[in-house]
Simulated assay, not measured.
Amino acid sequence: MRKIHVIGIGAGDPDQLTLQAVRAMRDTDVFFVLDKGEVKADLTRLRRDMLETHLPEGSYRVVEARDPDRDRTAGGSAYVAAVDDWRGARSEICERLIADELAEDGTGAFLVWGDPTLYDSTLAVLDGILERGEVAFTYEVVPGVSSVSSLVARHRTGLNRVGRPVQITTGRRLAEGLPEGVDDVVVMLDAHQTFRRYADQDIDIYWGAYLGTPDEILESGPIAEAGPRIERLRAEARERKGWIMDTYLLRRRPDDA
């Protein structure tokens, strides 16, 4: 029976690899990497650097495939359909890789940014393959240091406050309004800098991009003051690298909670 490791590798800092992750990597014959194209080639290089650092040369293979593009312009009900289409295309690619590149008694692995259980499609993709029944395998999940943990650690703050809830959401959902009864909100996958809608409220923002990498950028403060700085930094970084991955925490001040 084939075996798959789904390994969380942290937000980008090679030192964030856990001992469990390294053990799983050393138990792997073939690593599957979905390449996001030349613009994000440094993400693939970071993965290869981790492998070269922790594994003996010649003890593994790396198989790359082009990650399918997703329609990022879809909104409303079309958004769910666009995600489903993208996951379906991803599932077909991963199924082919496992069937063609991994021996029936071999062990493969997907190296996942951050933590595989938080806003990542790998587990859903593997479940979809198993449901089709064309390729059989078992899989295990190795948790990783998420960008959420990296963000608050780098800002030297906690994720929640005493007796208060915290919510993790997306920029798309934040655009519908701040969650009721929640004063600490972590926002991921926000391509439109939705925090700008709340610049007139007493809310602080803790923002980070390329967390854990040499390109890391941090900014914080009241949205009214830090927001314009973040917009400028974000635009400059995106122009320089061609892509950006950022996360932020919005925190209501106690008097406004």
Results as ranks from 00 to 15, higher is better:
residue 110 F to L: 14
residue 126 L to N: 01
residue 65 A to T: 05
residue 193 Q to P: 00
residue 210 Y to V: 12
residue 228 P to G: 08
residue 181 G to R: 07
residue 236 E to K: 03
residue 173 R to L: 13
residue 208 G to R: 00
residue 15 D to C: 01
residue 13 D to A: 05
residue 86 W to F: 15
residue 43 L to R: 02
residue 254 P to I: 06
residue 68 P to E: 09
residue 202 D to V: 08
residue 30 V to W: 01
residue 15 D to W: 00
residue 159 L to I: 14
residue 157 T to L: 13
residue 217 I to K: 08
residue 195 F to W: 04
residue 67 D to T: 13
residue 42 D to I: 15
residue 72 R to S: 12
residue 55 L to F: 12
residue 183 D to V: 11
residue 218 L to C: 05
residue 210 Y to P: 09
residue 19 L to I: 04
residue 225 E to L: 10
residue 232 R to N: 07
residue 33 V to N: 02
residue 130 L to F: 04
residue 221 G to L: 05
residue 56 P to N: 08
residue 11 A to H: 07
residue 178 L to G: 04
residue 49 D to S: 14
residue 193 Q to R: 10
residue 175 A to Y: 01
residue 240 R to V: 12
residue 107 T to E: 09
residue 219 E to N: 04
residue 256 D to N: 15
residue 12 G to Q: 00
residue 224 A to I: 10
residue 51 L to I: 10
residue 98 I to D: 04
residue 161 R to W: 12
residue 241 K to L: 14
residue 175 A to I: 00
residue 186 V to L: 06
residue 135 V to H: 02
residue 67 D to P: 04
residue 51 L to C: 05
residue 186 V to C: 03
residue 236 E to C: 04
residue 10 G to P: 01
residue 124 A to R: 13
residue 148 V to W: 03
residue 190 D to A: 02
residue 68 P to A: 11
residue 77 S to I: 04
residue 230 I to V: 14
residue 130 L to E: 11
residue 105 D to A: 10
residue 26 R to Y: 03
residue 87 R to E: 14
residue 139 Y to T: 09
residue 196 R to D: 02
residue 21 A to R: 00
residue 34 L to D: 13
residue 240 R to G: 05
residue 78 A to M: 10
residue 245 M to T: 06
residue 189 L to F: 06
residue 88 G to A: 00
residue 105 D to P: 07
residue 127 D to S: 14
residue 87 R to M: 15
residue 77 S to A: 14
residue 125 V to S: 10
residue 166 V to H: 03
residue 4 I to T: 04
residue 101 E to C: 11
residue 1 M to E: 10
residue 228 P to A: 14
residue 241 K to M: 05
residue 255 D to F: 15
residue 225 E to F: 09
residue 2 R to I: 09
residue 150 S to W: 03
